[in-house]
Simulated scan of single mutants.
Amino acid sequence: MRFLKWTVYGIAALLIFAFLHYTLPQTDIVRIVGTENRRMDLGENSWFWAAPDVGTGSGTSRDVFFINAVYPNGKTMEYRNEDTGWGWPPYFKMNSSSLNTSAKELQSTAAAPKWVAITHYGWRNQLFTIFPNAISLREVAGPDTRVIPWISIIILTVLAGILFMIRRMWLQFRERMIEPAVIEAQETLDDLDRRADRAKAGVGGWFRRVTGRK
Results as ranks from 00 to 15, higher is better:
residue 43 G to S: 09
residue 44 E to V: 14
residue 44 E to C: 11
residue 45 N to G: 11
residue 46 S to V: 13
residue 46 S to M: 08
residue 47 W to M: 15
residue 47 W to V: 12
residue 48 F to Q: 01
residue 48 F to R: 01
residue 48 F to L: 06
residue 50 A to Q: 13
residue 50 A to L: 03
residue 50 A to P: 00
residue 50 A to H: 06
residue 51 A to K: 14
residue 51 A to F: 13
residue 51 A to S: 15
residue 51 A to D: 13
residue 52 P to F: 08
residue 52 P to K: 02
residue 52 P to Q: 10
residue 53 D to R: 11
residue 54 V to R: 13
residue 54 V to K: 08
residue 54 V to L: 02
residue 55 G to I: 15
residue 55 G to T: 15
residue 55 G to P: 00
residue 55 G to M: 09
residue 56 T to E: 15
residue 57 G to L: 07
residue 57 G to H: 05
residue 57 G to V: 06
residue 58 S to A: 03
residue 58 S to P: 04
residue 58 S to D: 15
residue 59 G to E: 14
residue 60 T to A: 12
residue 61 S to R: 12
residue 62 R to L: 05
residue 62 R to E: 02
residue 62 R to D: 09
residue 63 D to T: 15
residue 63 D to W: 11
residue 63 D to L: 11
residue 63 D to I: 08
residue 64 V to C: 07
residue 64 V to E: 03
residue 64 V to K: 12
residue 64 V to A: 06
residue 65 F to V: 02
residue 65 F to I: 11
residue 65 F to P: 00
residue 65 F to M: 06
residue 66 F to R: 04
residue 66 F to H: 06
residue 67 I to L: 06
residue 67 I to P: 05
residue 67 I to W: 07
residue 68 N to H: 14
residue 68 N to Q: 14
residue 68 N to A: 05
residue 69 A to V: 01
residue 70 V to D: 07
residue 70 V to M: 03
residue 71 Y to K: 06
residue 71 Y to C: 01
residue 71 Y to E: 07
residue 72 P to H: 04
residue 73 N to P: 00
residue 73 N to A: 06
residue 76 T to I: 05
residue 76 T to V: 02
residue 78 E to A: 13
residue 81 N to S: 11
residue 81 N to R: 00
residue 82 E to G: 04
residue 82 E to N: 00
residue 82 E to K: 08
residue 82 E to I: 07
residue 83 D to L: 02
residue 83 D to T: 05
residue 83 D to C: 14
residue 87 G to K: 02
residue 87 G to S: 14
residue 87 G to H: 13
residue 87 G to V: 10
residue 87 G to W: 09
residue 87 G to L: 10
residue 88 W to F: 15
residue 88 W to S: 09
residue 89 P to Y: 06
residue 89 P to W: 09
residue 90 P to V: 06
residue 90 P to N: 08
residue 90 P to H: 04
residue 91 Y to E: 09
residue 92 F to H: 14
residue 92 F to V: 06
residue 94 M to R: 13
residue 95 N to E: 13
residue 95 N to Q: 03
residue 96 S to H: 12
residue 96 S to W: 05
residue 96 S to A: 15
residue 96 S to T: 05
residue 97 S to H: 11
residue 98 S to D: 15
residue 98 S to K: 10
residue 99 L to G: 12
residue 100 N to L: 02
residue 101 T to L: 11
residue 101 T to D: 13
residue 101 T to V: 09
residue 102 S to T: 14
residue 102 S to C: 03
residue 102 S to Y: 01
residue 103 A to Q: 02
residue 104 K to P: 03
residue 105 E to W: 10
residue 107 Q to L: 10
residue 108 S to K: 04
residue 108 S to Q: 10
residue 108 S to D: 11
residue 109 T to Y: 05
residue 109 T to F: 03
residue 110 A to E: 14
residue 110 A to I: 10
residue 110 A to N: 08
residue 111 A to E: 15
residue 111 A to T: 12
residue 112 A to K: 14
residue 113 P to M: 08
residue 115 W to D: 04
residue 116 V to F: 03
residue 117 A to R: 07
residue 117 A to G: 10
residue 118 I to P: 01
residue 118 I to H: 01
residue 118 I to S: 07
residue 118 I to Y: 00
residue 119 T to Y: 12
residue 119 T to I: 00
residue 120 H to D: 05
residue 120 H to G: 05
residue 121 Y to Q: 13
residue 121 Y to H: 15
residue 121 Y to R: 03
residue 122 G to Q: 07
residue 122 G to S: 04
residue 123 W to F: 14
residue 123 W to H: 08
residue 123 W to Q: 08
residue 123 W to M: 10
residue 124 R to N: 12
residue 124 R to W: 10
residue 125 N to W: 14
residue 125 N to I: 13
